[in-house]
Amino acid sequence: MSYQGKFRVWRGDDTGGALEDFTVEVNEGEVVLDIIHRLQATQAPDLAVRWNCKAGKCGSCSAEINGKPRLLCMTRMSTFTEDEVITVTPMRTFPVIRDLVTDVSFNYTKAREIPSFTPPKDLAPGEYRMQQVDVERSQEFRKCIECFLCQNTCHVIRDHEENKEAFAGPRFLMRVAELEMHPLDTADRVDSAQESHGLGLCNITKCCSEVCPEHIHITDNALIPMKERVADRKYDPIVWLGNKLFRRS
């Protein structure tokens, strides 16, 4: 059942680094994170990796396995052949701290830029009434475990540092959609999606949806509907004319 697996793991820090070769025991049923832990325990005690729940629920152990953005804890060794060399590298979009650990503070900065849930003022706690069918749309987006793999893979920022300032990324554009679709949120989020959070930069290549370990339909259910709402308001000629004639402010 056991075999000696071949691994190449990126080791280094913000000043540089390189892939390091390891041969390590692999047992039946294991995931890549198990192998990384075995490396720590036997060959490289100071190998840096982030992880928490080891069950795909916390979104800490994001990295790239053979170039694909994945959770280390949800990538089973049985998906590789025994003679395959498995390359593990840190997420590319964020600055490296050490080995497989990256500085994901970009995401926390973006989270703060999105105005929070704004409930109706006259509704006391306990009085909230919503139908299941109405909450389900936002519930899908709240399944997000914030692994930031969608942010990592999105080509708008993956190799374009210059876009980071203007673009919230799929995770946080989805947050805007989640609040917009919340049955009781009173804030208007359509204009700011385009103007403050960079929705227009997304050209719906669906890479984010593809890498989402929670299988959230980020593009189809969050980003495209938001784009439609923006288009309805911004580019619909009748709405445009109405806005010109009856300025809201």
Binding site: S116, F117, P125, Y128, Q132, V135, S138, L179, D185
Partner: peptide, 12 residues
């Protein structure tokens, strides 16, 4: 109930 005022979306 307070969590709902923070934005939580429980099943209904």
């Amino acid at each position: 109930w307070e969590l709902e005022t923070y934005g939580a979306l429980f099943d209904r």
